[in-house]
Design a protein around this nucleic acid. Structure first.
Lengths: 128, 128
DNA sequence: CTTGACCTTGTAGCCACTACAAGGTGCATA
DNA sequence: TATGCACCTTGTAGTGGCTACAAGGTCAAG
């Protein structure tokens, strides 16, 4: 499988895959006679893992840890749990921030009387 | 007022203020005899405006537009309203995404039996 | 007259990509 | 066989919004 096909199968782009390789998240695959990257099912599975974790908002550093933990299936999953729980707390925090922010924005927009900028509530709020 | 004092009054840092100046968000202030930036109440108000808008999640580009709109108080505030409403919709979208993500993470973490990595639900979910 | 807090410029780094440019490969069609 | 075109290669630079230095200048207090 060439890089474009792998990209399509994983909802990524060739650029992103090469970027993951550069940064060590993916290993260098074998090459075809024409020097094209040649991927198999192992790399596909690994990239899918990476994409799922990224879509769930894990950072590249966390993904790296999760990958290396998943490579050793006999050890305790305490570390995995701790990474995921920490991330969950982080997401909760962001949700709280975003909800507060939304309320403020909502008020601002609702109070706007659509008149002149000089009396615009939005500008007033921002100006303090 | 020197840059450090302005930073303290606005909850920023001197580096950020200089960055805003570099990128044209703030104008170059006058200088003291010793070549220090010398800020007055106008710059303080402008920086406060910028910080409030940034804290509400507006991008630098949006802040730039809001600033130039607020400079002309006689025109209609339609454009201001449209920037704010668009941003509000964007925030709503992000909130939705984050809520979905939280649910998935929550399930993952809840299902983890804290055993071996080989049976870890978190790793299973990520592996597909 | 030295200490130390503050300031100056300039450059590089962060994250996670994304966007080129300039050229090579491989396959279908005329 | 030639040509066109999609795809691939490497390398470099840019995005947003800062943040972190390094190497040096300024200024008030002790």
């Amino acid at each position: 499988m060439k890089i474009g096909a792998l990209a399509r199968k994983t909802g990524t782009t060739a650029e992103t895959i090469r970027y993951y390789e550069r940064t060590g998240l993916l290993e260098e695959p074998p090459r075809t006679a024409g020097n094209y990257r040649d991927y198999g099912p192992t790399e596909l599975a690994r990239l899918r893992f990476i994409r799922r974790a990224r879509d769930l908002g894990f950072t590249m550093a966390e993904v790296r840890q999760l990958l290396s933990l998943s490579d050793d299936p006999s050890q305790s999953c305490e570390a995995v749990d701790s990474i995921a729980s920490l991330h969950l707390r982080e997401v909760d925090r962001k949700l709280g921030d975003l909800r507060k922010l939304r309320t403020e924005l909502r008020h601002m927009v609702d109070d706007c009387q659509h008149g002149a900028v000089g009396e615009c509530r939005i500008i007033e709020v921002l100006s303090g």
